[in-house]
Write a protein that binds this DNA or RNA. Sequence first.
RNA 1: GCCCGGGUGGUGUAGUGGCCCAUCAUACGACCCUGUCACGGUCGUGACGCGGGUUCAAAUCCCGCCUCGGGCGCCA
Length: 433
Amino acid sequence: MDERTYTADATPDDTVTVAGWVHELRDLGGIAFLIVRDTTGKIQVKLEKDEMDEELVETGLDVTRESVVKIVGDVKEEPRAPTDVEIVPTAIEVVAEAETQLPLDPSGKVDAELPTRLDNRTLDVRRGESKAIFEIRSTVLRAVREAFRSFGASEITTPKIVATGTEGGTELFPITYFGEEAFMNQSPQLFKQLMVGSGLERVFEVGPIFRAEEHNTPRHLNEATSIDFESAFFDHTEAMDVCEAIVKAAYEAVAENCTDELETLGIDDFEVPDEAFPRLTYEEAIERINATGELDEQLVWGDDLPTEGEHALGQAVGEHYFITDWPAEIKPFYIKDHDDDETLSTGFDMMHPRMELVSGGQREHRFDQLVEGFEQQGLDPEEFDYYTKMFKYGMPPHAGWAIGGERLIATMLGLDNIREAVLFPRDRQRLSP
RNA sequence: GCCCGGGUGGUGUAGUGGCCCAUCAUACGACCCUGUCACGGUCGUGACGCGGGUUCAAAUCCCGCCUCGGGCGCCA
């Protein structure tokens, strides 16, 4: 297709070959219009019955919606055409014919439910709205990579097939690895920590994580994209600074590069967060939740925040915010406690008013305390020997975090289901496509 | 894992015991139409998830199964 012209680039008086999908055919009798769509937009092709070659007109009128066609013709300036230009064809080739009963309508005249759309994702992403989400997702991923690099972090990739889990407690997908028991990794946590002790020092990873929890909600996936960061010689406050900067960089990139996509999605009030994200302590958080009166029972120190409480707090705060200084007992063992108060963890969460986006903290880098943490969690440190032993050979203090990529996109765009932000979601009911 | 709520033409829907051999839109087929831009018009094709039960009568009520969505726990 070396001579192909995108529909958006068709300029009057050119002779072009455009290739794309038949979006619609409007037959008015003596004249008919074929609307051809490609990744850049749509263009109108005119068919005039008495003026043009009979066979050419017949080919054009017989073509079914969503068939792939190749049109050769002259581009004319035409104020009556939707884009002010139209093609007067000299040749129409049906490259790939589409069956007539489409499982969903890519022109968007008739809605389809999410499961129908996911079953037919190829057709779904021919729709402008779906396509816009994934163009934005692509921009977000590029922006976070660039932002990480500006902080001097190196991109790494770590194994997704592992012998042991990360935190032990979470459900893992078991697999068979040449006859041995193995698992799909639930987080790059341990591997990225191992790398802050390497010559790389500061790393990030964008990759899949797998969780076998049987939840069924608009904010959970069994395969998600984790955006991970970890740096040597960082404490939790510095990690939060980077976290905030990365999220803002993602918003900025979308605001700058995706105006058409935002318009397609009907988002006319897209705002890049510019204020510093408030940092609430856990204690302040439960006090504020209790003050809203939304919960039937008052929260007390040591409680995890229930979903209802998160929502109440999110509404009260109204923007992204951090929750810091959690009770040590409800944060994982690899997170370091405050030096001056062992009941307080350096762990933090970063919240969007609608849901949790990030969790992170300063890590326990001292070998003895780390091994003790494993034992307290009821885990056998021996099984994690590949990890713990590296803490014997000079592991610097370090901190980091992980963002749920799909949650970032879903909250950014106000999508009501996280599955909208994944091409082929994996959830409790869905393993295919 | 626990708890709710759904499944009606290809798609999206209306229909809470008889008015339903099932509504509307869109799609699809045929015909008419020379400037549409959700083109318009006429006619037509096409569906009650599966199995059992209650009833004179079931898309509608009951039971089981399958399937989907949601809430919670937990989490990113």
